[in-house]
Simulated assay, not measured.
Amino acid sequence: MEILIRTNAASVATAAADIISDYAGRGATLGLATGSTPVAMYKELITRYQRGELSFSQCQAFLLDEYIGLPRGHEQSYFATIRREFTHHVDIDDARVYSPDGTAENPDEAGAAYDEAIAAAGGIDIQVLGVGTDGHIGFNEPGSSLSSGTRMKTLHASTISDNARFFDSTSAVPVHVLTQGLGTISRAGHLMLLATGSNKAEAVAALAEGPLSAICPASILQLHPHATVIVDEAAAEQLRHADYYRFTEANKPSWQGH
């Protein structure tokens, strides 16, 4: 696991956009996350596209998750959100931006079909991740199986509370979701997790330096052969080995790449 510590949220977004830009140039299959943390990265990528510096025309993308019961046209569906925040502003083919079917009659079958679609596409080259204050990634709440596939999950009360800001009330937040499982996420070629703010510091320390545990689903990154964690100073404040991570980056061989 490579841990990159940046001064602030803006520099986290820039570092993440540098990595995604490299993959876009190769026509990669992207794993996209919604939520607040990646938005600044998406804005930076849109700006670079508008300046003519990169293209997503050869890319395809898969989303991490979707609410169960929300039609795709609902403004808070992740199908609609990723288009509003990112993909409608660049040249990726909208038909090549996929998400789990939260309106499917049988969520288990929809989850299995989504994993099959990812495999048929050749797998995800780089998966963007955020992390919840309780250590969840995607909607894999604490206690999730470390080898799980895409399936239905019941949201934790804290996650519902966190997401209520996007809805008219807490009661309007769907309780169930379809989410890529930890096993699905782990099959991506490169995992890139972003975290900013002191409220994420405990989760960042747990995922990077704590035990591998289903109680901290993001700790699954410890098993991955190519995982990059990009955090600001505030999110890094509980890392015991922060000085070593800075030293490692400063002495990284030029041939090693992202």
Score class of each variant (00 low, 15 high):
M1A: 04
L4K: 00
L4W: 04
R6K: 10
N8V: 06
A10M: 01
T14I: 12
A16C: 04
A17E: 02
D18L: 02
I19L: 01
I19Q: 03
I19P: 01
D22P: 00
A24V: 07
G25S: 06
G27T: 04
A28Y: 00
A28G: 01
G31F: 09
A33G: 03
A40F: 05
K43L: 14
R48Q: 09
R48L: 06
Y49F: 11
R51T: 04
L54I: 05
S55M: 09
C59E: 12
L64E: 06
D65N: 13
D65T: 08
Y67I: 08
I68H: 14
G69F: 15
P71K: 14
E75T: 15
Q76S: 15
Y78N: 05
Y78R: 03
T81M: 15
T81Y: 14
I82S: 08
R84F: 12
E85M: 09
E85K: 08
F86D: 08
H88T: 12
D93M: 02
R96K: 13
Y98T: 14
P100Y: 08
D101F: 08
G102D: 11
A104Q: 14
D108E: 15
D108N: 09
A112L: 12
A119Y: 10
A119F: 11
A121W: 13
G122Q: 15
I124Y: 11
L129A: 12
L129I: 05
G132Y: 10
G132T: 13
P142F: 10
S144Y: 02
S145W: 00
L146G: 04
S147E: 13
G149W: 06
R151M: 10
L155Y: 03
A157K: 13
T159W: 02
S161L: 07
N163E: 08
N163K: 01
S169I: 02
V173A: 02
V173G: 07
P174C: 13
V177Y: 03
G181E: 08
G183Y: 07
T184Y: 03
L191W: 10
M192I: 11
L193W: 11
L194A: 02
A195S: 14
G197A: 11
K200H: 13
A201R: 12
A203F: 10
A206C: 12
L207A: 15
A208K: 03
H224T: 09
H226V: 02
A227T: 08
V229P: 03
V229C: 11
A236G: 09
L239D: 06
H241V: 06
E249G: 00
A250F: 06
Q256E: 04
Q256C: 00
Q256I: 01
G257H: 02
H258Y: 00
